[in-house]
Every structure is written in C-alpha cells, then in structure tokens.
C-alpha cells in the first residue's frame, strides 16, 4: 500500500469509519489493509469463479466508500462491510445464473428455534476441512452461513445482520449445511 499509507493501526474499525465520514479519506487505506484479503477470500469461497470474486470484492469496497455515511458507528463495521460484500456476491450469482437463488424460503418464515451450538475444537477443525473440500457442491443458502460461521468467525447474530435473516434461521441453515457437508465428505473420502 502506497497511497493512503496506514495511519491508525491500533484504532477500532468503527472509529476509522467515523474519521472517513468526517472527510479524512486517507483512512480508507487502513480499511483496505484490514479487510481486502478477508473480503476477497469470502467472495472466492462464495462465488467459486476467481475473476467474479475479485470484481465483487472490488465493487464491495467502492460501494462501502460511497455509502460510508450510512454506517452507524455504534454498530459493528465488519458486519456492515460483509453485508455489502454479500449483496455484491448475490448480484454476481444472479448475473451468471449458474445457481438458483430462491427469493423466499420457508425457513425464514417459520424457523425452528435453534440454539447457538458450541462445537469442540476438533469438531470445528473437521467441519472446516469438510467445508473447504465440498464447498462448491453446497447450495449458496447453506454455503454462506457456513463460511461466515466457521471460516470468518462471525456469531449467529452477526450472520443474521449480514444476511438479513432471522437468528433462528442461521441456526437452521448451519445445522442443515453441516449435515449435507457430512454426507458429501463421507462420499468423497469414504470415512464415516
């Protein structure tokens, strides 16, 4: 990074966003340093086509800058930025029409009550492995919560904020996604 050199490495994302809102544009460089790799990785896992992922991530940062005045600094910046990235990825999926994206899902209307699960380290490690192996074979509606929870480290509430779905639906999709993954993994490796 040359232009807009890092300025505030110890500051929170939210206070950096506040500075950008006040017109100190150069701080956007710090946001790029902190999030560019993460957003690109997220887009790559979600979109599978690397070129689309690159474009989606780039567009997400442009939109984040354009709309930064709408960011409420009392909320979490990362959830806000990932929400923009999520919308961009969805736009790319719609354009490509390679995967079906239902406009409406019953699990949003009537989600079962699902409590946040806390898996032990070994289970988390195994699920991460399963996700990396079988990610592209998963339906986007299950793929995304799994990426956000296991690979990006968001909790249920943050995922609900990023995807704009009920917290209970996050739990439902994670549970179903894990089950589907397990089946794929068993088919691929033959390990039960």
């Amino acid at each position: 990074m040359n232009a807009g050199a890092p300025l505030a490495t110890s500051e929170s994302d939210e206070s950096i966003a506040e500075k950008i809102q006040r017109g100190q544009h150069q701080y956007f460089g710090e946001i790029l340093i902190r999030y560019e790799a993460k957003i690109k990785r997220y887009a790559r896992r979600f979109l599978t086509d690397p070129k689309d992922a690159e474009d989606a991530a780039q567009e997400a940062f442009i939109k984040a800058y354009r709309n930064i005045q709408s960011f409420d600094t009392s909320r979490k910046f990362s959830s806000w930025l990932y929400r923009i990235a999520h919308n961009e990825c969805i736009n790319f999926l719609r354009k490509r029409k390679t995967e079906s994206l239902p406009l409406f899902d019953l699990d949003v209307l009537f989600p079962h009550l699902a409590r946040e699960e806390h898996l032990d380290d070994m289970n988390v490690r195994q699920t991460k492995e399963e996700i990396e192996l079988a990610l592209s074979r998963l339906d986007p509606k299950y793929r995304e919560p799994l990426i956000l929870y296991y690979l990006e480290g968001f909790d249920y509430r943050e995922i609900a904020d990023i995807l704009h779905i009920p917290v209970a639906t996050v739990g439902v999709r994670l549970a179903r996604g894990r089950k589907i993954l397990k089946n794929f993994y068993e088919q691929l490796t033959g390990i039960k």
Partner: peptide, 8 residues
C-alpha cells in the same frame, strides 16, 4: 489498492 485509493 492504489487504483481504488487513486479513484477516491
């Protein structure tokens, strides 16, 4: 990164 910051 520079391209984006230059655009800004």
């Amino acid at each position: 990164d520079d391209q984006l910051l230059n655009k800004i």
